[in-house]
Design a protein around this nucleic acid. Structure first.
Lengths: 256, 256
DNA sequence: TAGTGGTCTAGACCACTTA
DNA sequence: AAGTGGTCTAGACCACTAG
């Protein structure tokens, strides 16, 4: 009789150190995560029930609950009400690529922002649609070149709504540094944004500014930000040299 | 005397419906999230303390705790031990692009996988390095074309370690469908993986297979999977037509 | 009916910050 | 010293699943 997919009544139980700086729920999560990684529990297996874990590790139900929630968020296990907690197989769809690295670049002193152009322009059909304006209404058009150790890395273009009754818009969006956008220090007027990434070919202007050769592929990172009235206030995009922006991530159980 | 950045003693308190199917912690999270979105609490403001929230909404400390943790994970607030809970400004670095859409494509019946080529090849220097083999050791080389409604969308190439003593490797990785890799149904032997995305130019072979024109930009999605012994077993990459794979996400407070 | 996870209570102690 | 969030207890009731 196979018991692989049944709840286990015995498994290696490590002791939780109550004097550790590390919280009990984190210790238990590490123990179980390591046991999954080492094959003590294999994909598809059922973990011991929460009641058994409480008893074996001498912690309260809430502590076990927190551990299980943590592992479930990580994608290590999945819970099914009324049935149990099960070890998940690797799931590629769980992977995600974050913009943390891009934010780190903005905090890097080697990064500099050069303002190429700021002027008032009338919205064309596309800009008007994005910013929810009428065609011909005035917008602020900004072009920036972002360098790392004086090497061109990103080219940014942006349209801001221009509303004389709301001068705060331009004031709050730091025209030169862009940094507030990333670390949240200067964009207290923005509520939410939509982001999109595509692969693109550089045109001649972009090739010149970014000092590459034609043809070159790059990331196109578009943003559309809304204020607290849900009005779009900023539409723009970064052209990112692929060698300065790396999207990498891990999936599954990673021993850090 | 301004009290904007001080703890609030009064704010609109909505009633939590204890008979709702929606858990109390989720109701409270929705209430607070909406109040942040509506400007009742603004970026930088301190939320009422957990004790006050308990009292005002008539829930236990653990319930408030769970609510605050939820909002902190979402990036809506940040907590500082000993000081309080504060509303965060929009933070671009918090954004992440997931592969969920790609996984959905694999579950789509319109998606088909055509096996172009499967053969044993000797590892070159690069492949050997990736799979931790000696140059010249045998690998399984697989080429697949993935179509959506008969339109070529992705081109996949993959090297698998070839070990006669471990035939399970090839058996478990479903050669034809690839589906198990995404939904976790068929990859119980894989423990973890590294993923990388770059922008690339298509070469002539890729242009022909994907039926586009030269020059074309596309996503290059590389994967390297490890088994439960931490040995690399699969290295490969997808060439993704940008029009079939959209990386989009939101940041900040989004009213769904 | 027995076992499971999901939620919740009403406190407690601690470490930390600020005044 | 007072207030804050972080952790934890030792239970409870519920909805769901399975035999």
């Amino acid at each position: 009789m196979k018991t692989n997919r049944m709840s286990r009544n015995d498994w290696p139980v490590e002791i939780i150190d109550r004097d550790s700086y590390e919280p009990a729920y984190a210790q238990l999560a590490n123990i179980l995560r390591r046991q999954v990684a080492n094959g003590v529990f294999r994909p598809g297996d059922q973990l011991p029930s929460e009641a058994k874990l409480c008893q074996s590790y001498q912690v309260s139900p809430m502590t076990v609950r927190r551990t299980i929630n943590l592992l479930a968020e990580e994608g290590v296990v999945s819970t099914v009400k009324g049935r149990g907690t099960f070890v998940k197989a690797l799931e590629l769809g769980h992977a995600a690529f974050g913009l943390q690295e891009l934010q780190n670049l903005f905090n890097d002193p080697a990064m500099a922002v050069r303002l190429l152009d700021v002027r008032i322009v009338s919205a064309n059909e596309r800009t008007a649609r994005k910013l929810n304006l009428a065609v011909g209404q005035k917008t602020i058009y900004i072009r920036r070149l972002l360098t790392i150790n004086d090497n061109p890395a990103f080219y940014h273009r942006e349209y801001l709504i221009y509303d004389p009754t709301r001068p705060i818009v331009e004031a709050e969006l730091e025209v030169t540094t862009l940094q507030g956008l990333f670390d949240g220090t200067g964009s207290a007027m923005l509520k939410r944004g939509k982001l999109k990434i595509e692969a693109c070919l550089l045109n001649e202007e972009e090739v010149t500014l970014l000092q590459t050769t034609l043809p070159t592929a790059a990331f196109y990172l578009e943003h559309l930000f809304y204020d607290f009235n849900d009005c779009p206030v900023s539409w723009g995009w970064f052209i990112c040299r692929s060698d300065y922006l790396h999207f990498a991530t891990r999936v599954g159980i990673n021993n850090d």
